[in-house]
Design a binder for these strands. Sequence first.
DNA 1: GAGTTTGAAACT
DNA 2: CAGTTTCAAACTC
Length: 662
Amino acid sequence: MDTPQKSITQIETPISKSRFEDSPVFNYINSLSPIRPVKSIPNPHQFSTLNFTSPPSVFTSPHLTSSHKESRFFKTHHPSSDPTIPVQESQDNSASNVEAVAEADATTEFNTDASTEMEQPQIVKETNLDDPLAVSPCGSRETTDLSLVPYASPPREENNGEDAAGMEMQKMMNDNVQGKNETPDWDRLIADSSEFLIFSSPNDSEAFRCLMMQRASPSLAPSVMPTMQPGSINEPESSNASPYGAVSVLHRGIRRRCLDFEMPGNKQTSSENNTVACGSSSRCVVPSIGLHLNALLMSTKDCKINTTTHDYSCTEKYQVGLQGSSSTLQEPFDQTETATRDLEVVPDEPTLEELHLSSPKKKRVKMEAGEGESSCKRCNCKKSKCLKLYCECFAAGVYCIEPCSCIDCFNKPIHEDTVLATRKQIESRNPLAFAPKVIKSSDLVLETGDDASKTPASARHKRGCNCKKSNCLKKYCECFQGGVGCSINCRCEGCKNAFGRKDGSSIVDMEAEQEEENETSKKTKRTKNQENTEVYLMRKEESSALPATPMSIYRQQLVQLKNMMPPPQSVLGGGSSSSGMFNSQYTRKSETKSLETVTEDGAEEMPEILSHTSIDNTKAVSPNGKRVSPPHLDSSSSGRRSGGRKLILQSIPTFPSLTPQH
DNA sequence: GAGTTTGAAACT
DNA sequence: CAGTTTCAAACTC
């Protein structure tokens, strides 16, 4: 039985309004007031494209406006007993907020907070905004918002929500521009915000930062994916299309969603996190922002979400500041892609840059034309429907996106159920299927007790490779691809892995590095034996695409830090759960842990990177100027020269300073 | 860009 | 668990 109340209110509003407007009193007032009543124009389009110029496409779709209310924000349960009112409210707010973020991106963290807060009270609790104002129970939102956000949308009538939002947006934009004079120190803002602005997910923060960056460098503003309207796709789940649509639009524009496969029963949470986009998103949508591309990687493979606890471990600083510095070694290509883009952004890596830019390598062309274009990891699946581990996206825990060339792809938000089911199935078969393939050596040592720790990479492939012909010298080899040495877990034949052979000899690396070092100083070419040379060349080729990009630099820094840190604690994230990809990396456990995990991958690449990049550069390109100062390795590391050319990871003793104890 | 090679994933 | 098939990335031309 329908409660007449609702319908009555719906009907009554317009009626009463019209009556009111027709009334002489109204006319009188109207005549007196210079303010003319403006009737809302129910034109969703007006709100979007026409009104705003910034990064339009992503957020301008009518679909978006129509589905705002169903965006992921509203997936969260409203604590209030009567969802209708809050929803209505949040509808406007969300619209304005989303738009604010999207269009104006003048939105500050406060606004973001506000939106988050408004839409996700629970998350707010979770995220614990330090700002007392921010934490307001559902009751007093508006006040809070207003107090918090200079341009936050004030409470307004439920009608013409979109227009209102749009107008509000413009107002906000204006206010922001005028009031702040548009001199945002984004780095500072982000840095500052990182302390109290805790995003509901790492991806959120990523997206946030992305937007910030975007604003910071409008010239780089993406062309923006024009027509990716998932909603336009005739999906069976049309009922759900909206939410997805909204989310997708938003995320497509901003971020690539990560799959949080876990929480089978907890769909809500799952969706919440699912929506969480990986940093990838940023790269996808904001191609110009090379730095963010890495974030994708981070989110996808490196910064794993500990779905078990729903913690995210890359500390916000890392997440935001480093922008996916941890981009996985498992995806050298991505790195390279990113690198290529980063070159434009980061001018201070002359040698490598030049090297990279000047070399019209096929690889690079390939990357630019293909993966690099979107700067997203792209799969090319044809038969697996992207629902098998064959699919890199799926394996990485991210949804496929536009740039993917996959056919019959089911790895999309609209098929979330399928994806989750498949994921579960695969995990049931192999609980570690989605676990990071490359894990820290320390962890490994705990597990296998092998000599992994002896190798420079300081990480090992979990299962080991099974190479027969590639000698573990090509990316066919997962160990090599991951930038780690082979271990006793490997069943490879003729292993010549540059990062460390199965037999435990990591000497190759040492020799190569030292050799290169000497060569560098002497400016002569190497005189190493053929094997090492071969290895070296291969690695160089690999890493040539990984010049001194910020990412690589971050990684480098991280690696350095890592090396200075004491041996990692027991595996937390690693074993945390089978949800794998996202497991450890985002666990908020401790910064140390985060760093470690982040570094984990970074270390994989180190040998090569280190041999080519200088610490000075590292310093120079520090993301937001925050931290990761390459510690005083020199004194402690025997492998490093005054020139700062090289770091020999192996030789760097653990350094206690960064961890509380030890 | 097409074809080949390779090894992981999936299957039996 | 081992062998085989399938698959898509990596690689080569």
